[in-house]
Each structure stands twice: as structure tokens, then as C-alpha cells.
Amino acid sequence: MYEDITKEIRKDIMVTALKGKAGHLASALSMAEIVTALYFGEVLQYDKDNPNWEGRDKVILSKGHASLALYSALYRIGYLTKEQLHGFCQEGSLLGGEPKRGDIPGVEATTGSLGHGLSFAVGIAMAEKYKKTLNRIYVIQGDGECQEGSVWEAALSAAHHKLGNLTVILDRNQLQAMGDTEEIVGIESLKEKWESFGFLVTEVDGHDTERLIAVLQKDKRDKTERPRIIIAHTVKGKGISFMENVPIWHYRMPNAEEQIIANQELGITKEDLL
């Protein structure tokens, strides 16, 4: 039942990037199911009419370069208009390549430089705990990002301060800018690493939306003082055959020929491009 939404998100990612002639397509495509689960799977508490509602759960996109996926979700819940979405990276637009807090409703932290999101989220989680709210904090983090030392400072802190209101979703798509994470600077074994840092770890197929939702909802129900991480195994560039698992698509935009294939595979029509 969530396939339709995920399909629309993938289309948004491609069309928005085309309009702005920019964006990290493959990094956004790998997390289409993750944002579907969060925003449309009755996981996040949010108010469609008031992005600053005190009782909201908060999402921090630590892998800020994948903003296209987040912007699509924010558009589809009504925080952005289509014009705003399609203004991406253009003159006068609020939507940059990396999300900026304060400019865009639903963006809880300015991100882009890797290794900041989890620390920022730890601060929010501490504040919510101090204020005794029930709000949950979600961080979508990249796998290559785990090479930043600051991630592990924040991880130590989250466990030490018993931040049971914090969930990290790790988009484990195996690739960073220049290739396989394990060939560049290996980060495995992630499960053991995060467990040893005090997190409750769940591994899932990150393209199985129903399974993601089940895990996230269980997280909400289970009261624990331990922070959680969901290692979501995904495919970078998911949904466009020639992009899947090919490192160069971290940066590249399709040429005219490739665009035709991408449009066909994602079901993008002429109307979608208007």
C-alpha cells in the first residue's frame, strides 16, 4: 500500500533535481522507503497545519546531501508547495542542496557537513528528556558518515545519557562518494560497533517499507533507556537501473539519453515535468 507513495517520492526526487539541475540523486533514491515509513507510516507525530507544534517528533537528516528525499516528503505532507519544491537550488529559492533550519518548515537542523546530525539530535533528545516530553527524535544518517569521529562521540553520549527517545536510521547503501565504504575506510561490523556503543540495533531491508514501519512502531511502543539504531540495508540509486550501485551517481546528473531511461523506469510523464 505504500508503494504508490514511494513511487511518487522517487519521481519527485528526479523531477526536482532536473528543475534545479543539481542534487545528489543516488543518495536520495536509496532512502525513499525510509521517508515513506517515517512520514506516511504513522510513525512520526506531526501537525500538518503547524510545523512548529510543540508535541512533534523531530527528524534530522544528517546526510543533508540527500535533501531531495526529505523535501519530497515535506511537500507531500503539505509543508512545501510544488512551486517551492521545483524551485530547488534556483535563484530566490529556500531549498538549497543541503537543508537549512529556519528557512524550511520541518527542517530541524541545518546539515550538510557530515557528522553533525547525531550530535545535534543528542542535544534535542536531552532537552526533550529534561522537559519530560514524549517527543521522539529520528536521525537519518549515512553509512560513509560513520567515518567521522564526531559520530562516535555522539553515540557514546546518547548511550551514557540514556536517550531512549532517540532513533538513528542508518542508510546502509554501501557506497560513499568514491566507492565502496569497505574499500575506502571500512566501517564494518556496524552491528557490533553500535551494540558495543550501547545502542539497540535492528537490521532491516531498507526497501521493505512495511518492515521499516513495523520496526519503527515497535520502537515507539517499547520503553527503554537505550538509544536505538536501525541499520537499513539499501541500494544507492534505487529505482534507476543504471544508477544502482554505481559510485559515479553520487555526483552526476543524467544526460539526455539517460534521462529518457530514468523517466521510463520511474514512470515520469510529460505532465510530471511541467
Binding site: 533550519r101 530541524e108 553533525h116 550530535s119 539530535a121 543528542v122 534535542i124 532537552a127 522537559k131
Partner: peptide
């Protein structure tokens, strides 16, 4: 963990 402290402080201030 000074860098982390500074960023966590920012998160707290955002609340």
C-alpha cells in the same frame, strides 16, 4: 568531547 558538546548545546537551544 568538545565539538560534540557545542553541537549538542545547539540542539538544546533549538528546543
Amino acid at each position: 568531547s568538545e565539538g560534540h558538546m557545542v553541537t549538542a548545546a545547539a540542539g538544546m537551544a533549538s528546543c
